[in-house]
């Protein structure tokens, strides 16, 4: 009797996993910058569509794209663009990554509230994170060493910031933190710290100053908190937040992406502190969705 019961339980467990892993189950994986936003979107979507199930996990953009290539997820969140190496890899296993832009981020450089400095140029940021300048005094601040907080190499933000701001290697002394939230926590406690995070993580954060950044010396300083500065491109480190799908999306994935791009979806984007899509990206998405 007992044995039969055990067998029955096991059979039931299999049946259950089977029914969920069908068409109604979506696996989304990747960017830590996007995780909170996509989780909120997924929750709202599941509320509206009973019976659908979406699992959102993090791990970094690189991890997400690798998972998409290995067939371990349906949608990859990425805060950077896919690299040509990754496209090659994907094509070699018959995966065709298609990109959709779901939100715009003003990548925010933050320091502690106790640090009097509140604006820097791109050039100065590059020097700081390459490790060429190591004391706040250089910029008219207090005489204290600069402690760098960045992300780990599986992060899309790590890549994006390096590509756009550093154009070189990070200082080996930069602390490699696990996620955006950890950087914000660290900066709150460290008066000498500087770090970079997605704007969605600083909207409600106390204890940190969001830097205004100028594209070059002499240019106007702009803030990532201003939708206008980000949209107009005046803020120099704004970036699209992307999702990658294998081939033109269909079925459950398409349905969810359409929800993300809908008015309601974009309202959630704004609530989470990011910015809604400008027209060029709306157009771009139409093409890649095959609409």
């Amino acid at each position: 009797m007992k044995k039969i019961l055990i067998l029955l339980t096991i059979a039931l467990m299999f049946a259950y996993t089977h029914s969920v892993s069908a068409d109604d189950m979506l696996q989304i994986k990747g960017s830590d910058t996007l995780i909170n936003l996509v989780q909120r979107l997924a929750e709202r979507y599941m509320e509206k569509n009973g019976g659908k199930y979406i699992a959102v996990t993090g791990g970094g953009s690189g991890t997400g794209i690798a998972a998409l290539i290995n067939g371990k997820c349906d949608i990859a969140n990425a805060s950077r663009l896919i690299k040509s190496k990754e496209i090659e890899q994907a094509n070699s296993v018959n995966v065709d990554p298609k990109r959709v832009v779901v939100a715009v981020d003003g990548l925010s450089v933050i320091v502690s509230k106790d640090n009097p400095i509140d604006k820097l140029t791109m050039d100065e940021l590059g020097k700081i994170f390459r490790g060429e300048v190591t004391n706040w005094q250089e910029f008219g601040g207090k005489n204290m060493p600069i402690t760098l907080y960045g992300r780990q190499s599986n992060s899309g933000t790590f890549d994006f910031f390096r590509e756009v701001v550093l154009k070189g290697d990070y200082s080996p002394k930069m602390n490699r933190m696990n996620g955006n939230a950890q950087i914000v926590e660290a900066i709150k406690q460290d008066a000498s710290g500087i770090g970079y995070v997605g704007v969605g993580y600083v909207k409600n954060a106390n204890g940190v100053t969001v830097m205004r950044v100028a594209s070059r010396a002499g240019a106007d300083y702009a803030s990532p908190l201003s939708a206008q500065d980000v949209k107009s491109g005046k803020y120099p480190i704004a970036r699209p937040l992307n999702q990658y799908i294998n081939g033109t999306p269909k079925g459950a994935a398409k349905d969810f992406i359409l929800f993300e791009l809908s008015e309601e979806g974009q309202r959630i984007v704004e609530e989470e502190g990011f910015f809604v899509l400008p027209n060029e990206y709306v157009e771009f998405n139409r093409n890649s969705m095959g609409l």
């Binding site: 190496k85 190499s153 599986n154 490699r176």
Partner: peptide, 15 residues
């Protein structure tokens, strides 16, 4: 940065 953390950080995304 220990050997274990390096593996944990990088193995997830390495091609």
């Amino acid at each position: 940065r220990t050997m274990t953390s390096t593996i944990a950080i990088e193995l997830g995304e390495v091609p």
